[in-house]
Amino acid sequence: MQIFVKTLTGKTITSEVEPSDTIENVKAKIQDKEGIPPDQQRLIFAGKQLEDGRTLSDYNIQKESTLHLVLR
Rank of each mutant, 00 (worst) to 15 (best):
G53P: 06
I44Y: 15
L71C: 07
T9V: 08
F4G: 02
R42S: 12
D58A: 06
A46K: 14
D21Q: 05
L67A: 00
G10Q: 03
Q2V: 15
K11R: 12
N60K: 10
Q31S: 12
L50Y: 01
D21V: 03
L69W: 00
P19N: 06
S20D: 11
L56N: 03
N25Q: 14
G53S: 11
S57F: 09
I23E: 02
I3R: 00
E34T: 15
K6P: 01
Q41G: 05
V17N: 03
Q41N: 03
L8E: 14
Q31E: 11
Q62E: 11
G35C: 05
K33H: 09
I36A: 04
F4Y: 12
L43A: 00
G10L: 03
G35E: 04
Q40K: 11
G10K: 04
L43T: 00
H68F: 14
S20F: 10
Y59S: 02
R72E: 12
A28E: 09
P37T: 07
V5C: 03
I61P: 00
I13N: 02
T9K: 11
L67V: 08
G53F: 11
E24K: 12
L67S: 00
G35F: 04
K29G: 07
E24L: 14
Q40W: 10
E51F: 07
R72L: 14
Q49S: 10
E51S: 08
I36Q: 03
E64C: 10
I30T: 02
R54C: 10
Y59G: 00
D58N: 05
Q49R: 09
F45Q: 02
A46T: 05
T14E: 09
I13Y: 10
T22Y: 08
V5P: 00
T14M: 12
K29N: 05
H68P: 00
Y59H: 03
L69C: 03
K63P: 15
S20I: 06
G35Y: 04
L50K: 00
T55R: 10
S65C: 04
R42Y: 13
E24Q: 12
K33V: 12
I61M: 03
T66N: 04
Q62C: 05
T22Q: 04
R72G: 09
L71T: 10
T14P: 06
K63R: 11
S15V: 15
V26Y: 01
G10A: 04
A28F: 12
K63E: 12
G47Q: 04
T12R: 07
V17E: 01
F4T: 06
Q2M: 14
S65A: 13
E18T: 13
Q31Y: 15
T12K: 07
Y59D: 01
P38C: 10
Q2K: 14
T14Y: 09
A46P: 00
V5D: 01
P19T: 07
Q62R: 10
S57L: 10
I61S: 01
E64N: 15
K11T: 08
Q2G: 06
T12Q: 06
F4E: 03
I30E: 01
T66W: 08
N25K: 14
I36L: 06
E16W: 15
L50C: 02
T55Q: 08
N25L: 11
I13R: 00
K29Q: 11
T55K: 10
E24W: 15
N25S: 15
K27P: 01
V5Y: 02
K33F: 08
D21F: 08
L56S: 00
Q31F: 15
T7D: 07
D32H: 11
Q31I: 05
H68E: 10
T55A: 05
Q31R: 14
Q41T: 10
P38W: 14
P37N: 08
G47C: 06
K11F: 10
V26E: 01
P38F: 14
F4P: 01
P38M: 15
M1K: 03
L71W: 09
L50G: 00
V70H: 09
I44E: 10
S15C: 15
K63Y: 07
G47A: 04
L8R: 12
K11E: 08
I23D: 02
Q41A: 07
K63M: 10
E64K: 08
D52T: 05
K33L: 13
K11D: 07
H68Y: 15
D32W: 09
I30W: 02
I13G: 01
L56K: 00
K63F: 08
I61E: 02
L50P: 00
T66E: 07
I3Q: 00
V70R: 09
G47R: 04
Y59C: 01
Y59F: 03
E64V: 03
T66S: 04
I13C: 04
Q41W: 11
K48W: 08
V5T: 03
V17Q: 05
S57G: 11
Q40L: 12
T9G: 13
S57E: 12
V26G: 00
S15T: 15
N60D: 09
I3C: 02
Q2R: 14
V70D: 05
T14Q: 08
G53T: 10
D52E: 09
I36F: 11
L50M: 08
K6L: 13
V26N: 01
I36N: 03
K63Q: 12
T12A: 04
K11P: 04
R72P: 10
P37R: 09
G10F: 04
V5E: 01
E18Y: 15
L71P: 08
I13T: 03
T12D: 03
F4M: 05
I13Q: 03
G53H: 14
Q49G: 06
T55W: 03
D52F: 03
T14V: 14
Q62W: 07
K27Y: 06
V70K: 08
E64H: 14
L43Q: 00
L69H: 01
I13E: 02
P38A: 15
G53D: 11
D21M: 11
K29R: 09
S65M: 11
R54P: 04
E51A: 08
F45A: 02
I61L: 03
S15R: 06
N60P: 02
S57Q: 13
F45T: 01
I44H: 10
Q49K: 08
K63L: 06
T66C: 05
R54N: 09
L8A: 14
A46Q: 14
E24F: 14
E16K: 09
T55F: 06
V17K: 01
K48E: 12
R42N: 13
I3S: 01
Y59V: 01
K33S: 14
E16H: 11
T12N: 05
I36P: 06
P19M: 09
A28N: 11
K48M: 13
V70G: 06
V70P: 01
Q49C: 12
R72D: 10
G10S: 03
L69A: 02
R72H: 11
V70I: 13
R54I: 07
H68T: 13
L56C: 01
Q62M: 12
V70Q: 09
S65V: 06
L50I: 03
E51V: 07
D32Q: 14
T7F: 15
G35P: 03
H68Q: 11
T14K: 10
R42P: 02
R72F: 12
Q31N: 10
L43F: 05
T9A: 12
E16M: 13
E18L: 14
F4S: 05
R42L: 15
T9R: 11
E24N: 08
A28Y: 12
Q49N: 11
F45I: 03
I61W: 01
T55G: 02
Q41H: 06
I61G: 01
Q62H: 10
E24H: 11
I30V: 05
K11H: 12
R54S: 08
P37V: 06
D32S: 11
F4D: 02
L56A: 02
I23S: 02
L67K: 00
R42T: 15
K11N: 07
F45M: 04
F45G: 01
I23C: 03
E64T: 07
T12P: 02
G10C: 05
Q40P: 02
Q2T: 14
K63V: 07
S65W: 04
